[in-house]
Design a protein around this nucleic acid. Structure first.
Lengths: 152, 152
DNA sequence: TATTGTTATACTCTATAACTATA
DNA sequence: TATAGTTATAGAGTATAACAATA
């Protein structure tokens, strides 16, 4: 059987210059953010949890009983979108909305028993993802970038 | 006139914990990326150029004559989306697609005269945006974060 | 056969407004 | 009057597939 000719992959295209983009932090932040999210999605693909859904579950787990408004403000997710997300997570028996004693308008958010199990697995899978990031950056660089972005 | 009661702003909500998110780089990258893009969009609002459009114009300016496929691969923008973007930028007399001499399938991308003027202004406005980032991070942190993300 | 560029479709995310029930 | 939550809609961005022209 003859060898197939390798498809033209054009890996480097090294001659193409970024121009002024090479001095724009936003460009590199965006590229790295896309890479990180793709790796995260792959890491949690078995659980069918998006980065945004994971962030919701994580904050509810750390603050049982908080309201949707507080969650929305903490994560910067629009209230309207959060309502749909919680509807979906509720259908999947991950989160639940209990009536609030103090304010009948608001809900107290909790994880269900199933939600807690799912979160434990998601947390472990996301920790492996995080280890990949540490390796890719190197420990020192990872720590300094995390600290810089956290303080921003 | 009696003082109006200040609206409940709930600035800090300091009691809400991030939980495991506090050890996830992707969360902070996403938050900072959103802030940076919003500041960029505000900075260039007078020119009506999105970050993605700016990146296209910048790379065409730095590599006159390159093809859409090369541009697509460099910036990680889908060919399908890039076709629509260039259609729009062409309608606005910013970019132009000239026939390629060597390959009749492909186009050679260039800025128009108007496109070059627009790019000069966009570059200046984006430089002011970048200065805000430098101030916000501090020069040392800015430089180390930029280097780390660029090398990623 | 594979690549370039185009069109079309579907899905997600974002932004906004309008609505209800409570406060 | 303002807030909590919901629903609906429109606009971007992303991911695919299919297609014509060319290699």
């Amino acid at each position: 059987m003859p060898l197939q000719r390798a498809p033209m992959v054009r890996r480097g295209s090294a001659s193409i210059k970024l121009g002024v983009l090479d001095a724009r932090l936003g460009y590199f932040i965006r590229r790295v953010q896309l890479w990180v999210f793709q790796d995260f999605i792959r890491a949690l693909s078995g659980l069918d949890l998006s980065p945004a859904q994971f962030s919701v579950v994580a904050v509810v787990a750390a603050n049982p009983g908080l309201t949707q408004a507080a969650l929305s403000e903490t994560l910067g997710i629009e209230r309207a979108r959060l309502a749909r997300m919680l509807h979906d997570l509720g259908r999947r028996d991950i989160t639940q909305r209990l009536p609030s004693a103090r304010d009948k308008r608001s809900h107290a958010l909790h994880l269900t028993g199933e939600g807690q199990k799912l979160f434990a697995r998601a947390r472990a899978l996301s920790a492996k993802h995080e280890e990949r990031l540490v390796k890719r950056f190197g420990t020192n660089r990872y720590n300094s970038v995390l600290a810089a972005l956290r303080d921003f």
